[in-house]
Nucleic acid binder design. Sequence first.
DNA 1: TCAATCCTCCAAAACGTTTCGGAAAGTGAT
DNA 2: ATCACTTTCCGAAACGTTTTGGAGGATTGA
Lengths: 339, 339
Amino acid sequence: MATIKDIAKHAGVSVTTVSRALNGYSDVNEKTREKIKAVARELQYSPNLLARSLVMKKTKTIGLLVSGMRIEGSKDNFTYEVLCGINDCAGERGYDLILFSTNSEQQQQKTYNQLCQERKVDGVILQGIKTDDPYLKEVVESDIPCVLVDIPIESESVGYVTTNNKQGAKMAVDHLIELGHRQIGMINGHEQAFVSKQRLQGYQEALDQAKIGYQEQYVVNGSFLESEGEVQAEKLLHAHPEITAVFCASDLMALGAMKAARRMGKRIPEDLSVAGFDNIMLASYSSPTLTTIAQDRYQIGFESAILLIDMLEGKEGTHKKVLKTSLVKRESTSKTKNI
Amino acid sequence: MATIKDIAKHAGVSVTTVSRALNGYSDVNEKTREKIKAVARELQYSPNLLARSLVMKKTKTIGLLVSGMRIEGSKDNFTYEVLCGINDCAGERGYDLILFSTNSEQQQQKTYNQLCQERKVDGVILQGIKTDDPYLKEVVESDIPCVLVDIPIESESVGYVTTNNKQGAKMAVDHLIELGHRQIGMINGHEQAFVSKQRLQGYQEALDQAKIGYQEQYVVNGSFLESEGEVQAEKLLHAHPEITAVFCASDLMALGAMKAARRMGKRIPEDLSVAGFDNIMLASYSSPTLTTIAQDRYQIGFESAILLIDMLEGKEGTHKKVLKTSLVKRESTSKTKNI
DNA sequence: TCAATCCTCCAAAACGTTTCGGAAAGTGAT
DNA sequence: ATCACTTTCCGAAACGTTTTGGAGGATTGA
């Protein structure tokens, strides 16, 4: 509650001097500086960041726009782990995080720019928004620095962090091919996700390279959801019983696919190999455990924060970061018996 | 970027009138109000909350002090799900959330009061702090309204939300007793958690009621961790091979215990019944699936926010909320063969 | 016609900082 | 004694709001 003015009074100096003393300016005598610091401690002074931000036009605050902040996100832990990464980096660099709740209706009304300008965040990290989200247009037009997770848009004021999805998908399908599979289905996410396109590309490239023809009807969309993965897998396997392996664009859908397969009397991996993408916690606990492509969600968050803060602090450099993936072999994939 | 002053100039009125017009005061002519609103829209005005907060002494912001914001928290999803609940309620009520990163060293230096006063949060929700955390003392002494998760302290300015841990633990142990078990071990959390004490009480009460003597050596601590649960379970089962059932104070420890038991050649549930606490995602995916006590983490968060905001807005009432638990029977518990 | 009342509006202060431009005093050099 | 610096300090403006206490004019009632 003590202000700079109180300190000035107690120490017998002006507010200017107090401000400059506490902020480490050189034009204040060391003795008076010590005196001022002592008084500040005594009065338990802590600066009012609101007032400071108002004049400095910097809040040392990063806005977080997460559209998937829902309880369902608890299964894969994407949002949470990204958040951890952002939080850690922001902490190190002296920034605080402010969460914009975009779930509620009354907040829905506000535009992206309103949200940011009202709270005067220095920059924003966006996660989980779809490519057809109206916010996205605003983002690229606005000149508020921002970093996108998994949406490859780059400009003066916007950067992005993502995983090498194409490479990851290719690794997964390569792995299946290596095991002898030729009839390989894919359960993809949805059209409104860049990652889906990229993973599809990886799938196609792997097939191409192995001289396996791409068949459109082998690819279905499951919206990244376990339940939808289950129904789509069932349809796919029914329509094409010759399929011996499925690559899913998310672990959750892979779990759903395994359920469907089991219900259809197919053993995993003997009758059907299943590979996922993400390496979520459940992947190592399911039975059979799930072969998958690991992506480091924590690091995605961490790198996002690095990128954004570097932009905020005027560091030059590219505004993108693409992270590597790795293949995690587990029990859900094996050699095809048709070999 | 447009300010109230710009609007005043364009509309040919004073800033006072603009402010009062936009804030819905009655002492402004409807015509001029419309004019002002039109100008505001035209200039894409959005209020500067920093300035407003500075004079109003309200920020419409809730601080979030989460000590367990780590990647390991990804297994149980406690932090995330609580956060979702808080986020949703805060959104509905028009509050934003600010995350204090207490992980980093430089933030460690700051006291609780400094954190709150600098950012001028209206209130705080604390989650995951231990009973010996230095912040806790500050919290109760400070007059900043705050709500604690799982720490039963109540005063003028502090409230809490928790689950009925004693009742939950009792339900679990009752269930085991009903299945015929008499030698029931417990793997508890750690001393620095209130929930541990309460769950132990529930365990004791259930035994008591069934006229089963409480044996101190049947209870060990596993810090809520899967790994530690595993080693403690192994020790316990080695020292007391007569034990036929174990109640664990967290699902993670239960998973660890199952691992240990399996490694010792015990089948679950035929040779050993295992019950957990939390009902985390993994509990329904492990094999065998885990019998456990469900607690609604989302609701804990939601109620915390309700409680805090009610306090902030001067609503009278008790400052605590204790949520119910429920027993989820799955495969990891069954009748003892010794009956 | 006079006073009372109502309806609109506004000037200025306040919130707690930072910063610009300069002022006073001290220090050497010439 | 004068000049040129250096060191140390400060007054005042600025940031963008809200709010207090009224002012001016129109309307009403007697």
